[in-house]
Design a protein around this nucleic acid. Sequence first.
DNA 1: TCCAATTAGTTGCAAATGCAACAAGATAAG
DNA 2: CTTATCTTGTTGCATTTGCAACTAATTGGA
Lengths: 161, 161
Amino acid sequence: MRVAFATIWCYDALMTLQPSEETIQAWIQLHKSQRMLLERVELALKKNGLPPLDWYDVLLELSRDTDSGLRQYEIGQRMLLSKHNLSRLIDRLEKNRLVRRDACAEDGRGNRIRIAEEGKALLGKAWPVYRKALQDNFGEKLTPAEMIELARLLGKVSKRS
Amino acid sequence: MRVAFATIWCYDALMTLQPSEETIQAWIQLHKSQRMLLERVELALKKNGLPPLDWYDVLLELSRDTDSGLRQYEIGQRMLLSKHNLSRLIDRLEKNRLVRRDACAEDGRGNRIRIAEEGKALLGKAWPVYRKALQDNFGEKLTPAEMIELARLLGKVSKRS
DNA sequence: TCCAATTAGTTGCAAATGCAACAAGATAAG
DNA sequence: CTTATCTTGTTGCATTTGCAACTAATTGGA
């Protein structure tokens, strides 16, 4: 029993107290890759005179609910943006006439954000550039099976404890 | 031969022009996961009165070359930080006496950054917190084999074209 | 009904980031 | 040797982010 106890103790110490070497490598790689890819894709967008990726993401979410629009907190949840930040991101989009911010009927505090015609137009113009940058910098680096596996692993990793 | 040609064409169109659905899912998941994990770990650091992760990363790099120190551009390459940004990050660290910035003997333009005693102390104080946050939020979510596979896939993805 | 607690969103202020221009030392070509 | 070019790093300015405090509307009890 002594051996088993020692084994359990070691296992516990190694598995829960200390991140393994593999864990640390994956952690570093995760941040490096994400940063590098984002930088490259953003650069491609900018070179073609297009706004940053955040704008695209918001517009894309909104384009899925053209009629009813979305509440700000809904966009925030989907994009993982804090509310104050989102508030000002919407300001910018509104100023550029890409979205409209209407008072909300069922909740006097909030507003409904809807994509405007110019917003749709921008989506259409940006997608070819985004698509190419995405494929060149990311898509073609892995086989379809690897891509599915990557998404699965990342999904597991971001599950709340 | 017509068929083969058509096949090739389709393949080309699908594989290089258009990111597949799997690619898009993995792309979204990559950014969501990274953002979420970073947020959680940064929060843990802050709750314990520790500085942001960037500080830790720089100090860690420097702690590997205690004697000779590192040039700023070397740190920049390893951490994927732009030079102007790094310049000011070092300013902050220097102001907090965590590093020293000495004139560089072999190149009059640059300087060598060395970790100071207080920097080492901070590393020691931060690691237990960082380690726990890393393990709880990331390490324990995957098996060791999955972790290795994740690092491998991310590595492939960030190879320059 | 009335009041406390929660939620949605905004705003002021400080800190961090990106961009472009810059200074100054190194390098290479003539 | 001289001059043009490249590299390393800094700085000013505008934009963006994070934090905390705030308003206003909703919800849920007593």
